[in-house]
């Protein structure tokens, strides 16, 4: 599959909390990415099934309809999405989710509430790969 440069520079934000969406949008746009948002599991699923692979995905674990793990395995099952860096975003006290997410192929994780500087650094590292 041919990768168009402009497609490369997209980030998918899968997140139902509009506060977090605003934060992520700001941080990712500052890294030069254009941001597409899916507010629930079902529309994220649709995005994964139809869109070309983005440069980065941030994935909330607790989502309406379909959770982050189900989406992650869907992402990793698509050949052209296999290499896309995925950052899992989990709530506090869900440490088990981190292990499960990393096992299922997440590239990195962030625990809410997070330090924006830290997230920025992680995103930069993943984009460089």
């Amino acid at each position: 599959m041919a990768r168009h440069p402009s497609v490369q520079r997209t980030a998918f934000v899968v997140e139902d909390d509009e506060q977090i969406v605003a934060l992520l949008r700001h941080i990712l746009e500052r890294e030069g990415l254009s941001v597409r948002v899916a507010g629930d599991g079902r529309s994220a699923e649709q995005l994964i099934d139809t869109a070309p692979p983005p440069a980065l995905v941030t994935l909330d674990v607790m989502l309406p309809h379909l959770d982050g793990f189900a989406l992650l395995s869907r992402i990793r099952a698509r050949a052209d999405w296999e290499q896309v860096p995925v950052v899992m975003i989990t709530g506090r006290g869900e440490e088990e989710d981190i292990v499960r997410g990393l096992d299922a192929g997440a590239s990195d994780y962030v625990v809410k509430p997070f330090k924006p500087e830290e997230l920025r650094a992680r995103v930069r590292r993943l984009l460089k790969r």
């Binding site: 909390d17 506060q19 977090i20 605003a22 934060l23 809410k112 509430p113 997070f114 330090k115 924006p116 500087e117 830290e118």
Partner: peptide
């Protein structure tokens, strides 16, 4: 809510 989503 914004404050509780971030640290630092």
């Amino acid at each position: 809510r914004a404050l509780e989503s971030v640290q630092g």
